[in-house]
Design a binder for these strands. Structure first.
Lengths: 243, 243
DNA sequence: GGCGATGATGAATGATATTTATTAGTGCCG
DNA sequence: CGGCACTAATAAATATCATTCATCATCGCC
């Protein structure tokens, strides 16, 4: 066939790992700035210093690139606070820690959180994907907390751990949509405290009694309010649940 | 310029209202079946018996068409159960009614619910849109329930109504994602009961006591289970209704 | 029964993701 | 050393839609 061009071509000779990470870094920026649909492969290629076609050597298509970028972010998220969490004692403090952490993660990376909620999770191939497993591990910490709380006799034995998980993470996501659309802000400490109190009352046999642990306390910006609320609570034991 | 075609054209002469409703009906089907992105204007036009260009006489673009379709659906949803709800007494029953209704609406129209959650709500122009107002009205009923419950002394005075709203609707949406992706199902009655009990305990001064009202009971698909659970609850009459 | 006005038509346009023919490098074998 | 085959980068071409617009069918009016 006829030659397509007579121009001399510049060839990018960086090693593949480097080009991949350049592409992913560029993609992360562009997806975050413009969202999935408005992010152009051309933009990403330009910012990564490669040409469109090169992206397709490493990623099957635009969506796979998105998935890889979000996976990478989520993996970091998951590791970040594992040892901190291990030090927290008591159901109330543990729930609060996880709520606070989630609120903080969303606030730190609203654009990627949005991509996760809006583009990744609703997709029909989400279940079975790596991100599904990662997210499961992430939210499962709360399930374990509830199970442990039941086992130790602190929480009602008829509590459904997965329902608590949906209650907590659902509430957080619902509450953060305004922020995710760029229309407002929230105080993670204050919000975490309010959510935790409400949920804890729903699952505990007694009102919160665990001492505020230092790990958690350090995260607080509204400690005074918290202690006031803890003082109010009437300590009335509950009847055992249905079934 | 040169004529574009020598073929005789068939002209659709239905009245505009009819063509608009045909287009919206077709769009509703196609969006529901394929989702926003994979729905082609060509498909919609074909199914509506009009030509692509005609759609643009009535709708500025594909997205406006989507918004109008979802608005239409949501408006019906909002009216449907207003008088039913008015008959429900007691915070527990009211919360349960709203939760049950939402779970049922999602289950009845998963595709449109998805479009609402995935395409409409995250958009930057959502706030200020008609759907924002409609959704606000929809969820505000729960806010009113909580406010009334506080006023009547049934619920804790330090309860945040908007937090309860986010807790409840967030939980429901989180819990329904599996179903929305077409991967499972749930029993609205059972789920509503579980959510309501958990949330109610978090906000109530005492354990749930309202009798199951007939309006709610009629909606049940798992009546037996519900009544068993109700049998357990200590029968203590409630303070009078809202306001 | 011609004459504008109205609005329906569907081919053209434009924007983008993706594919592919082509070519720049790279190293091996003679 | 110098062609030669292989790999991988390039950018032009293609494919897929949403959207626009020049044209024309139809209707009401005279």
């Amino acid at each position: 066939m006829a030659p397509r061009s007579a121009l001399k071509r510049q060839v990018n000779r960086l090693p593949p790992e480097r080009r991949i990470s350049d592409i992913m870094a560029a993609a992360k920026q562009v997806f975050a700035e413009k969202g999935y649909n408005d992010a152009l492969i051309t933009d990403i290629a330009l910012r990564a210093g490669v040409v469109e076609g090169s992206i397709y050597r490493f990623f099957a298509n635009k969506r796979e690139l998105l998935v890889k970028v979000v996976e990478h972010w989520f993996e970091e998220l998951l590791q970040e606070d594992a040892e901190q969490f291990a030090a927290v004692r008591g159901s109330w403090n543990q729930i609060r820690f996880l709520v606070y952490n989630h609120l903080t993660s969303i606030r730190r990376d609203p654009a990627l959180s949005r991509l996760m909620f809006q583009e990744i999770r609703p997709a029909p191939d989400y279940r079975g994907s790596r991100l599904f497993d990662l997210n499961r591990a992430y939210t499962h910490r709360l399930v374990d907390v509830v199970k442990a709380g039941i086992a130790s006799g602190e929480l009602r034995p008829d509590t459904s751990p997965s329902l608590v998980r949906d209650l907590v993470f659902g509430c957080i996501e619902h509450r953060t949509w305004t922020f995710l659309r760029g229309e407002g802000d929230y105080d993670p400490a204050e919000t975490a405290e309010a959510i935790t109190n409400l949920v804890y009352r729903g699952v505990a046999l007694d009102e919160p009694t665990s001492p505020m642990e230092s790990v958690v306390a350090r995260l607080e910006t509204a400690t005074a309010r918290l202690e006031a609320a803890a003082g109010i609570a009437p300590a009335k034991p509950n009847s055992p649940g249905p079934r």
